[in-house]
């Protein structure tokens, strides 16, 4: 297997791919894909692999107070030795404190740091292929590009994974995420259960899409909602189809309990020929503004669709 190409110093190669998950941004070689993830923002991990094995793991844990990192890493080092890791040695790449060791034929390098900004302990683990020596310069490059993202001024949080970039209000809860072959879908819900937004990307379109995108979009209207409008707009070479539907209920019930509206946009990106869809439903009580659920989905640098 060819080793991944390193970007030049001070420059991120466009071939490398950035992933943003739970406010953590990491840039990795293009053939590394996210194979495991956690939805919990307090404690969790993402695991990336190349075509042959797991290569990189990013763990996070929210802390109440700053920990004594040096002591923690030293204790951890002792524990790794006890667990059977051989040739355990300290590593460093400021501000990261690291440890390397050998598990059989494999080099494993672990780096940890405390981010005061997000009050998280971060751990980056590099899993090297059997017989291949660890490359500190490669690890340093990945660590230098690993960032804790601050929320934007309008309180939105950016996510970038599985070929999509999406923005959601930071107040939403990451409700679910399903990733299957040629299909990825992430759902974010408001805490009071007054709305939810879904971001989806579907591949192999020629195999299953037998109608137009607008007809397909109409078929996705949830049960109990009636279509109000379907419109088309050309944006940067993309034909974006937008739909609005409203829950079918009597005027009296709407007046008493509030209204629910469903909105969705779908398009096929000419760049990768995949179908992208962003949708949301929101509850609006009588005399009140609809809950704030401003979301955006982007398939490529040329298009961002806002709802």
């Amino acid at each position: 297997m060819k080793p991944p190409r390193l970007p030049r110093s001070g420059q991120i190669s466009p071939a490398w791919q950035t992933w943003v998950w739970q406010g953590l941004s990491v840039t990795l070689p293009p053939d590394w894909e996210m194979l495991q993830f956690t939805r919990n923002p307090e404690v969790g991990r993402c695991v990336f692999g190349d075509r042959y094995q797991y290569r990189f793991e990013l763990d996070w844990k929210r802390m109440q107070a700053p920990p004594d990192m040096e002591r923690m890493v030293s204790d951890y080092r002792a524990k790794l030795s006890e667990d059977g890791l051989s040739d355990v040695r300290p590593l460093g790449h400021s501000p990261w404190l690291g440890t390397s060791g050998q598990d059989g034929e494999r080099d494993i390098c672990r780096y940890g740091m405390y981010s005061a900004e997000s009050r998280q302990i971060l751990e980056a683990v590099f899993l090297w292929p059997p017989g291949e020596k660890s490359k500190p310069s490669f690890e340093g490059r990945v660590l230098d590009m690993l960032r804790v993202l601050t929320r934007s001024e309008d309180g939105r949080q950016r996510w970038q994974a599985f070929g999509m970039t999406w923005h959601v209000p930071a107040t939403t809860v990451f409700a679910s995420c399903a990733v299957e072959p040629a299909q990825a879908e992430a759902v974010f819900a408001l805490r009071n259960n007054r709305g939810a937004a879904t971001f989806a990307r579907r591949g192999m379109v020629s195999e299953w899409l037998t109608t137009s995108v607008s007809e397909w979009l109409v078929q996705t209207i949830p049960a109990g909602y009636a279509q109000e409008s379907v419109t088309h707009a050309g944006q940067s070479g993309h034909d974006v189809c937008s739909l609005v539907a409203r829950r079918e209920r009597s005027v009296l019930k709407d007046w008493l309990y509030g209204r629910r509206q469903y909105e969705a946009c779908a398009w096929i990106c000419p760049g990768d020929r995949r179908l992208y869809c962003v949708s949301r439903w929101m509850h609006q009580r009588r005399g009140q503004q609809a809950a704030g659920l401003d979301v955006a989905l982007s398939c490529c640098s040329g298009l961002e669709v806002l709802l």
Binding site: M34, Q36, V47, R51, Y52, Q53, Y54, C177, V179
Partner: peptide, 19 residues
């Protein structure tokens, strides 16, 4: 979802399977 687990990637190395 753990895409790795769902496809039997538990060992972390799937060279033998691919070969």
């Amino acid at each position: 979802m753990k895409r790795g687990d769902s496809a039997g990637l538990g060992s972390g190395d799937w060279r033998a399977m691919l070969a």
